[in-house]
């Protein structure tokens, strides 16, 4: 059994007999997994393997791009383009339809970013990303400048028109995954080091306010808060000890799906958006849930 309920309500989201299958394997550290609804394929990154991969149902896996600056989190914007948190390249960039890349942000107020980790695009095309610094310290994650310059690990909003960055959270500790609630009134940001998720109100100007602790994901199994997404009901799904946890909108942990390898990220996909794909160290896994994710673009 891979599903483990903490609350009976978990069984509304996941069938008790749910099973997990292997989609693709042979990587070093997979991350940034997203389902492209228009093009009907799965995309993910291999940070240390330094590439972006693509899997099409019935077709298989192929290389989308590599080397790719040791990419981490990804998202798909409304135009169907992949936007990437450039962990090793220390920037935020976009993969264009013709295969070229566009760098969107490298510095904040003239100071080089740390290592952008995860990224989301709001429906108004503004881009939100986290910028912890631990990527600078890991061997094999960097080919370029490994000096840390910023005195904090921020969360930023990138304005789509001006490409100007606004610092949203300055005092964070190792901010990692982030996602909006389905109506985009809330922004969730997690900290792997603290093992918790914070929630903020999103203001009309795109900035955020009223930080409060949303949930703590504590356990002895490997893994912690990293990749995070909401389902269509507003439940917050987040990697945590042992796999991927479901937390209801009030912050109650409902249960978790146990994944055979340390899981850094996940996404929903498939035509009904009910297949959850898991990005682990070496392998991409899949499991079919009862609850659906929010399709993108």
């Amino acid at each position: 059994m891979i599903a483990e309920a903490f609350q009976p309500a978990f069984w509304d989201l996941v069938a008790k007999e749910v099973s997990i299958s292997r989609v693709s394997t042979g990587y070093v550290f997979t991350e940034g997994i997203m389902w492209h609804s228009q093009k009907r394929y799965l995309v993910w990154t291999d940070i240390i393997g330094d590439k972006i991969l693509k899997w099409t149902p019935g077709v298989g896996t192929s290389l989308l791009m590599g080397p790719a600056g040791h990419p981490d989190g990804t998202f798909i914007d409304r135009q169907g383009r992949l936007v990437v948190a450039g962990w090793g390249s220390r920037n935020v960039w976009r993969l264009e339809d013709d295969g070229s890349t566009t760098v969107l942000a490298t510095h904040f107020e003239g100071v080089k970013l740390n290592t952008p980790n995860d990224i989301v695009v709001k429906s108004d095309d503004s881009i939100y990303f986290t910028d912890p610094s631990n990527g600078i310290r890991h061997p094999g994650h960097q080919d370029g400048d490994i000096q840390k310059y910023l005195d904090y690990e921020g969360v930023y909003r990138l304005d789509p028109a001006t490409r100007k960055l606004t610092l949203l959270v300055k005092g964070g500790v190792n901010p990692n995954g982030l996602c909006f609630s389905p109506d985009e009134s809330l922004l969730y940001i997690n900290s792997q080091r603290l093992g918790c998720i914070h929630v903020y109100d999103v203001k009309p100007d795109g900035t955020i306010a009223n930080e409060r602790l949303f949930a703590e994901l504590v356990g002895t199994d490997p893994g912690g808060p990293d990749g995070m997404k909401c389902d269509v009901h507003g439940n917050v799904w987040c990697t945590g000890p042992g796999g991927v946890w479901a937390v209801d909108p009030k912050g109650n942990a409902l249960g978790r799906i146990r994944v055979p390898e340390h899981t850094a990220n996940f996404t929903w996909g498939g035509d009904d958006m009910k297949t959850m794909f898991f990005a682990t160290r070496k392998t991409i896994y899949a499991a079919t849930l009862n609850t659906a994710g929010i399709p993108l673009p």
Partner: peptide
């Protein structure tokens, strides 16, 4: 201890 996670 090294910077984690250590992959190698």
């Amino acid at each position: 201890p090294g910077s984690r996670p250590q992959f190698a």
